[in-house]
Simulated assay, not measured.
Amino acid sequence: MRNLDLTSLRSFVAVADAGGVTRAAGFLNLTQSAVSMQIKRLEETLGLSLLDRSGRGVALTQAGEQLLTYARQMVELNDDIYARLTMQDWEGEIILGVPHDIVYPVIPRVMRRMQRDFPRVRLQLVSSYTADLKQQFSKGAVDVILTTEAETGDGGEALHEVPLRWYGAPGGSAWKSRPLRIALSRRCGFRPVAAAMMQESRTEWELAVDSESDRTIEVTVSADLAVTPVLEGHAPAHLEMVPPGVLPDLGMQKICLYATTARPRIVTPLIDMLRAEFRALGGRTEIAAE
Rank of each mutant, 00 (worst) to 15 (best):
M1Q: 07
R2N: 15
L4V: 08
D5P: 07
F12A: 03
F12L: 02
V13P: 04
A18P: 14
G19Q: 09
V21Y: 13
R23S: 13
A24T: 05
L28N: 04
Q38K: 15
Q38R: 15
I39Q: 07
K40M: 01
L46A: 12
G47V: 13
L50D: 02
L51I: 04
R56H: 13
G57H: 09
V58E: 13
Q66I: 10
Y82V: 08
L85E: 11
T86Q: 13
E91Y: 13
G92T: 14
L96Q: 02
I102R: 04
P105G: 05
M111E: 14
R112H: 12
R112F: 11
R112G: 04
R112C: 00
R113H: 15
R113K: 15
M114I: 15
D117C: 07
V121M: 09
R122V: 10
L123I: 12
Q124P: 00
D132E: 15
K134T: 07
F137W: 14
V144T: 12
E149S: 05
E149A: 06
E151A: 10
E161N: 04
R165N: 06
G168R: 01
A174W: 03
A174E: 04
I182A: 07
S185D: 09
R187S: 14
C188Y: 14
R191Y: 11
V193Q: 13
V193S: 04
A194M: 14
M197N: 03
M198W: 06
Q199L: 12
S201G: 06
R202G: 04
R202W: 08
L207H: 06
V209S: 12
D210G: 07
S211F: 00
E212C: 03
R215G: 11
I217Y: 09
L225D: 11
L225F: 06
V230T: 00
E232F: 02
G233M: 07
G233K: 05
A235S: 15
H238T: 03
H238P: 01
H238A: 11
L239D: 01
L239G: 02
E240C: 01
G245L: 07
V246C: 12
M252V: 10
M252P: 00
Q253F: 01
C256G: 14
C256E: 03
A259P: 00
A259C: 08
T260Q: 08
T261M: 14
P264N: 10
P264K: 08
V267E: 11
P269E: 12
I271H: 00
R275M: 09
E277D: 15
E277Q: 14
R279T: 13
R284F: 08
